[in-house]
Write a protein that binds this DNA or RNA. Structure first.
Lengths: 178, 178
DNA sequence: TTGACATATATCATCACGATATATATCGTC
DNA sequence: GACGATATATATCGTGATGATATATGTCAA
């Protein structure tokens, strides 16, 4: 599932502009990483050249003209193919774990401060995600709702890991008489 | 924590070649995403130009010559700075969730097949990680061991999520009389 | 002896990201 | 009414990560 397939997936439902696609993605995957215009517009141009989508120019008064993209039959086939393409589990990457890996180079109080800061950002994102629940319940199909629940659980568990880490860091300092 | 900082982190412990660094990273972060030569060699060249590391050529008989990199005082300062630099939580990205998001376009049996396949790859990675425990226990400091435990928990929880998803998919099919 | 695997370096095309630029409209507020 | 923030909408640019590939040689087992 690359950028192209995701865009096609949204276009399966309705025709949209690049701007609309960015918004749709941000709302649907607010708990996961975003999609920038630097990826969207080049992908749209490429897919148009490949005949997967067609463009309709909507002249607007005052506001910038809209370029509304519609998925073609070839695009639909490409989307379904990519949805069925062999699936490789992707190893996640975590900047926090990279820092933890080198924690020995930091004094104890800085270690704890970092862990607390990390917990704060997780909790903040979790609250943000939780507050989006009504909108998700209103618009998502049952699989999209499952995605949302995945996200919530992920943040809940991450929060748990880091809380325990903070406890561990505290105990080690007491043991060392700090 | 970008590629440069991670490489500096490993070089804090001992001098190494690009090849050694790739191996060290793969072993330490076997549960998280890798680092390719296409990132390592350009980063080493750049850091050498910036005076963060110094190079020593070791002529070898037969085998390719080794370029052994050693961290400089400037490099140590840069590493500690980056370890303390403001920390932004990075949103993870999951190809599996992207597929799940569009599951409505697939027939039920393909949905289940994908979920099972995903569970298999997670379990496989988990087993692989578990089998590395002795080596980790032998070589890692306590923070690096915490990283390892983070990894194990992550895979354990992921496995739980996907197992439940498979159950959910099964129940829905029974409800629909499939 | 043949093929797989380990050592070791390096580059290349592709492409995602984040920042920035350019315009206009709207909406609240001081 | 002026001002600033936010929304609509397109697009490009530099930086840099990824994965594949190229190039050599040595070793070890089938």
């Amino acid at each position: 599932m690359d950028v192209q397939s995701v865009l096609l997936g949204f276009l399966m439902k309705k025709s949209m502009t690049g701007y609309d696609l960015k918004k749709a993605f941000s709302i649907s995957f607010l708990f996961f990483s975003g999609l920038s215009y630097g990826s969207i517009y080049p992908a749209l141009r490429k897919m148009e050249n490949q005949g997967m989508i067609s463009k309709r120019l909507e002249i607007q008064d005052g506001a910038p003209n809209r370029k509304v993209y519609t998925i073609t039959e070839a695009g639909k086939r490409a989307f379904l193919d990519s949805l069925r393409s062999p699936f490789a589990f992707e190893l996640p990457k975590s900047t926090f774990l990279m820092r933890l890996f080198f924690f020995a180079h930091l004094p104890p109080e800085e270690r704890r401060a970092f862990a607390r800061q990390h917990l704060d950002s997780i909790e903040q994102l979790r609250a943000q995600l939780e507050s989006a629940r009504p909108e998700v319940e209103a618009h998502a199909d049952r699989f999209q709702y499952l995605c949302f629940q995945f996200g919530l659980r992920f943040y809940r568990d991450m929060s748990g890991y880091v809380s325990e880490l903070i406890d561990t860091l505290g105990v080690e300092e007491i043991e060392n008489g700090e």
